[in-house]
């Protein structure tokens, strides 16, 4: 791998920016070059929120991901907007609780995860984002318990330390989901 260009997208409030930040921190801890760029326009208020994350072995050029290798789509508008942008041979992770349609392309690997339902069944509140993150790490070969724990230590402030285990559980559930 030289660089993974990732795009996280969904509604505001789904933890899109947090999920991206977690992935960036995990990369940083593992001595990768990383960048994280949020959408900050009026679109964040009610429409799609998204962030570009790049994890690379070499210095990151443009931090803007227009054609992702990996797309995380947590709602239908996100999939509608970005499906065609994913590079051929790329991956799409879709929250199938909220996205009823299937991905139309056949040149990308698609993973449907009913993350919102799984989170609600397991009383994991709004951690659908981290369930998808778990699946993403598993499928990209980046799932390491040590790295995940270290990254959670970075993104969750000390005063909310009790959230670390819950986040870890969500990630684990995603990774184990077939």
């Amino acid at each position: 791998m030289s660089a993974k260009n990732m795009l996280f997208s969904g509604f505001g409030g789904q933890g899109i920016l947090f999920a991206g930040k977690f992935i960036a921190y995990k990369g940083l801890i593992e001595d990768k070059q990383v960048s994280w760029l949020p959408s900050y326009g009026p679109e964040m208020r009610g429409g799609t929120a998204s962030c570009s994350v790049i994890v690379s072995d070499t210095p990151v050029g443009s931090p803007i991901v227009s054609n992702p290798d990996i797309l995380v789509a947590m709602n239908l508008p996100s999939l509608d907007r970005f499906e065609d942008k994913v590079v051929s041979g790329g991956m799409i992770f879709a929250d199938s609780t909220l996205i009823e349609r299937k991905v139309e392309r056949d040149d990308v690997k698609v993973f449907y995860i009913p993350a919102t339902k799984m989170a609600s069944d397991e009383k994991l509140g709004n951690l659908a984002n981290m369930i998808i993150v778990g699946k993403l790490l598993k499928e990209t070969g980046d799932y390491t318990e040590e790295g995940i724990r270290a990254a959670l230590d970075k993104v969750i402030p000390a005063k909310r330390a009790n959230m670390k285990d819950v986040n870890f559980k969500a990630i684990q559930m995603g990774a184990e989901f077939e």
Binding site: L28, V34, W36, L37, V60, P63
Partner: peptide
């Protein structure tokens, strides 16, 4: 510019 202000990097 807005990107430099909003982006996160190490």
């Amino acid at each position: 510019d807005g990107t430099m202000g909003q982006m996160m990097e190490p």
